[in-house]
């Protein structure tokens, strides 16, 4: 008998994560570890993990990892990549981190076209702090700080930050995906592979937004959570390619 799905080389052996049952982080972690192995990038990888549930990701990833203050992931990634361009730099961030407290860092690192890859986990809620409303919470979504549902008159509208940065000339690749089904997960892996390759090719900023379940704070089962993504969340955040300027950038570079 031969094992088909070998343990990823850059995932610490036999770890049990602290994530809740059905949390999307585990799936995306596995994809990152698999891609670093498949693309032979693990040896020079440098990942910035956020303040949020994924703050302990360094206990799971078996390559170099640094933690960041809330929202500052892409600033740290900028400093590291500028100082040592030979590193393969990933900023792993959640929605509160990337689209609330770190908005300025997100916008400007994207606008500068930093040659880094951002993996953006959007679960429409603050997970670690216990389910408060996020900028990405959808209208009507009930959270601990929007108990009657997100009301645009009080709380404003869901923030489409990936769509915003996708318009920037410095952003070479941006895609929105989900992890709500096996087929979607395959697409997610492909998108993150494209984002990683963008950095390898030196074409600039790449970002993949992953609509990801948070069953605990959504107060749903993991299976219901996947259905909620596919039935509700995608109405607000339509999955698909948001920009692909890789060919343009390649031509610019060639000039």
């Amino acid at each position: 008998m031969e094992l088909i799905n070998n343990w990823p080389k850059y995932y610490k052996k036999d770890v049990v994560t602290h994530y809740c049952p059905g949390c999307g982080h585990g799936i995306v972690h596995r994809i990152i570890a698999e891609l670093l192995e498949e693309m032979d990038l693990g040896k020079q990888a440098y990942l910035v993990c956020p303040a949020g549930c994924a703050v302990l990701a360094y206990h799971y990833f078996d390559f170099d990892v640094i933690e960041s203050a809330h929202g500052r992931g892409t600033a740290i990634a900028t400093g590291a990549k500028r100082a040592k361009p030979e590193l393969f730099v990933i900023s792993y961030q959640g929605d509160g981190d990337l689209s609330a407290i770190g908005t300025a860092e997100t916008i400007h690192s994207a606008n500068r076209g930093e040659n880094i890859s951002v993996v953006f986990i959007n679960n429409a809620v603050y997970g670690m702090t216990g389910g408060q409303m996020a900028p990405t919470s959808i209208l009507g979504q009930s959270t601990t700080t929007s108990p009657d549902g997100r009301n645009p008159e009080v709380d404003g509208y869901p923030l489409h930050i990936t769509d915003v940065v996708a318009n920037f000339p410095g952003v070479a690749y941006a895609e929105r995906v989900t992890v709500a089904s096996p087929a979607a997960i395959k697409k997610t892996k492909k998108a993150i592979r494209n984002a990683f390759q963008t950095q390898v090719d030196g074409l600039g900023y790449s970002i993949v937004e992953v609509l990801s379940p948070c069953p605990t704070n959504w107060k749903m089962t993991p299976v219901q959570s996947c259905k909620w993504i596919e039935e509700e969340m995608v109405k607000e955040y339509k999955p698909g390619l948001l920009t692909d300027k890789r060919e343009e950038r390649r031509k610019d570079r060639a000039c």
Binding site: I66, A75, T78, A80, A83, A104, E105
Partner: peptide, 26 residues
């Protein structure tokens, strides 16, 4: 070397953290 005008002092000091973490004098 690298000179970068950041978007804020907060971003600048975090860029410092990034460069310091990889061993560069910053």
């Amino acid at each position: 070397g690298v000179f970068l005008q950041s978007e804020s002092e907060t971003a600048a000091i975090n860029m410092v953290i990034g460069a310091a973490s990889v061993g560069t004098r910053v």
